[in-house]
Simulated assay, not measured.
Amino acid sequence: SDGDSRWSKLGTTLPVRNVQALAAVAAGELTGDAIERYIQPDIDADAVIPAHSDEVPVIDLGRLTDAESVEAETAKLRFACEEWGFFQLVNHGVPDEIILAIRRDIEKFFQLPLDVKNAYAQRQGDLQGYGQAFILSHDQKLDWADMFGLYTQPPQARDMSFWPSQPPMFRNSIEEYSSKLMKLARSVATFIAKTLDIDPELVADKIVVQYVRMNYYPPCTLMPEKVLGFSPHSDGSFLTILLEIISVQGLQIRRHGAWIPVKPLANALLVNVGDLLEIMTNGKYKSIEHRVTINAHKERLSISAFHVPKYDGIVSPLLGTTEEKVLYKTTKVEEYSRLYLSKKLDGKRAQDHAKLSQT
């Protein structure tokens, strides 16, 4: 079934120290040793170009549903997926009160005492819960962040033992936000199908399961320019939708070999192409590497929703013409997800396995 409990058993991660607690140590007492595992030696390997941050495409969902503007907006959406792999979505239709509620409750959750949050700690071999992801060895570099992950959709995919009873309205907020987002993801996928001139049914079944990850990035007073909240990676999803809870600049996307900071618009959701959509479009639409940098003084909070096909689904490249060269293998969703989750984050390495070698 789509509420497949096998999903949460795809990954395993080692327990690591809580970063929020580490960040709370007074700057004078925070030693280089304590944050040694977080120092990223090649963080400055590529330039950061803030001047391009205003160019991230903005797509208006209202214009996609309006007969007058649908053609022009569809062309913009195609451009966004081909050239950027990221876009800001405005007029997305998720009600303000649902967004306010999830914002309020995520903030409250991360403010709870550590022992309360640890009641929802990740369990060995489970992707859900409070902790960190992609920690596979005792000596790898760590990200300056704590996270909390849940399978939210479809309802039968949920393991309620991970759903916090505090703050009191949290479960309700997650339920409402996740179901609205699931509908939105399906609707965006339908418009993406239009940009490709394919039957929307071919993408409808690519958005069956939703996993949400709440990300808490504490400030780092000691060496903020040497740590990352999230190492460079592309998403192993079909489509990801991100909401900034406390918006502090930090997200950067890789473009033409440099990093572009993304400044989220106040009422926008940020949508990005995942690896599985890149495979399905035979590389036309790009799943872009991104990372999160850390602020010296301010915390950042966000929630990402990853939408994937069913556990035993497959994704095959759709070709526009018979002349077009097939660049990706037909990929089993379970196999790809297992591979993606079994490695530490490292750019687009997982996706390279899905590429056919061109002779």
Rank of each mutant, 00 (worst) to 15 (best):
L89G: 09
V208C: 08
V227T: 00
K9T: 13
V58C: 12
P261F: 09
K343F: 10
P309C: 00
E323Y: 12
Q153A: 10
D235K: 05
I198Y: 06
V271D: 00
L318C: 12
W144E: 00
P218Q: 05
A185Q: 02
I241N: 10
A27S: 11
F230D: 04
S165M: 03
L100F: 10
I59P: 10
V262L: 14
E289A: 04
F148K: 03
D197N: 15
A157K: 01
I246V: 12
Q252Y: 08
S304C: 12
L127F: 08
A296C: 14
N18W: 04
V209M: 13
Q249Y: 01
Y340V: 03
L150R: 02
R291K: 14
W259Y: 08
A26Y: 11
L150I: 00
P50W: 04
F86I: 03
I207K: 03
N272Q: 07
K286A: 02
D54W: 00
P309N: 07
D96A: 15
V273S: 07
R254T: 04
F110T: 01
E175S: 14
A350C: 00
P200N: 04
F191H: 14
L327T: 07
I106K: 00
K344H: 13
Q122W: 02
V58H: 09
A189Y: 09
L242T: 07
A258V: 15
S302L: 08
W144M: 03
M169K: 10
D346C: 14
K206G: 04
Q20R: 13
F79E: 14
F109Y: 13
V326H: 01
D126H: 11
D96R: 15
D143E: 15
E68H: 06
D46Y: 11
